[in-house]
Amino acid sequence: GDAAAGAYMVIATSTMKPKTFCSGHKVAPGDVPSPNSTWAPLHHLYGPCSPAPSSANSTAADVAASMADMVDDDQRRADYIQKRLTGATDDKQPMAFSSRTSQYEKNGQYATNGGLGSVPHLKSLSTTATTNSAPDGTSAVTQTVIIDSGSDVSWVQCKPCPLPMCHRQRDPLFDPAMSTTYAAVPCTSAACAQLGPYRRGCSANAQCQFGINYGDGSTATGTYSFDDLTLGPYDVIRGFRFGCAHADRGSAFDYDVAGSLALGGGSQSLVQQTATRYGRVFSYCLPPTASSLGFLVLGVPPERAQLIPSFVSTPLLSSSMAPTFYRVLLRAIIVAGRPLAVPPAVFSASSVIDSSTIISRLPPTAYQALRAAFRSAMTMYRAAPPVSILDTCYDFTGVRSITLPSIALVFDGGATVNLDAAGILLGSCLAFAPTASDRM
């Protein structure tokens, strides 16, 4: 009866494991590529939906150890964002992509494929290559990048990018010399000045240099550049500004991705660069498993208007102190159909909403109430040791289906969002953690 009322969900444990094949998109009206927007598939970095899936297998022990590493790295990212929001003015970005290379960690981030540049086709190329070419006889070079709504400067590794100054990547290195539409940003240009804290002087030939210092000490440096970016099947963003990295030392980028697509609120981000065309509106859907696909959309194509009634809305807050980050106000949490008994004042601080922070963090008073309600609904399962900051974990060995209490987040204005089962557990642990203080 509770399940029917939406208070609980019954999940077959088999559905929580990635399949060996890509189940593709769950398509609703309007959820298809459109000439009026930029629409691109979004996938886990590894798994059957990735264009270049990994063949590596992980043992259960590997997964447990790597999940702890992933959560530790995520905490560093969260700490860094909190520092930025207190007014710290350094130029570090909140990257917490792990320097370790386990399978589990790689599943904590989401990637999309973009085409960069225009490479002239030789006449001897195959029919397939010709089919992919642009009308002017050139084609883009596919690059797999992490999407990050918590940073502002996009970049990819560019030739030359020797190891170990750079990291291995699955796609061929982008070669500016082979692109007919590539240009370095001149040092004296407005685009170079707009780099602000990410500007790193000029090269000997007066090309604008960029540098990003990530929160964990990693860096990416190189030449700030223009080239055409193709996202999805229809649209080309001409003169996209991005970092052409020739070194990303100390790197947190052991992922074999080409770089990062920045969707933050700062002036350098893709969102701001495409403001005229797409009106500073973008959306994404993160897939529940590595065997399913999500999407990234820039703009609002008219055919998506029919979806509007199915959206709930809450005010989006921004801060001139840290324009990179997007924030919302959480007002209440409902567990198994019952609101937590938490004074509204506990939720008075905002929450950063971010595509690359993995675990949600709540004020301690709210977290403790959530944990108590969740544990009380999960007493039929064996408890398991904590994993890093995740202190509510279970041993589901031998369990064929899990009865999970529903969790809904209620945002300012009454927007109530029911979490998917994939949004409640990370591995076998409740995927929430507390902040350091209710007063943060």
Partner: peptide
């Protein structure tokens, strides 16, 4: 601040509508 992490965003369509100062959500979108 707190955080709304990417685990909790799974299967939601999350719309960042900057000019309207609105964040929109749609469940079971992917």
């Amino acid at each position: 601040p707190g955080f709304i992490g990417n685990v909790q965003q799974k299967t939601l369509e999350v719309v960042y509508d900057v000019p309207a100062k609105a964040m929109r959500f749609r469940t079971a979108a992917c």
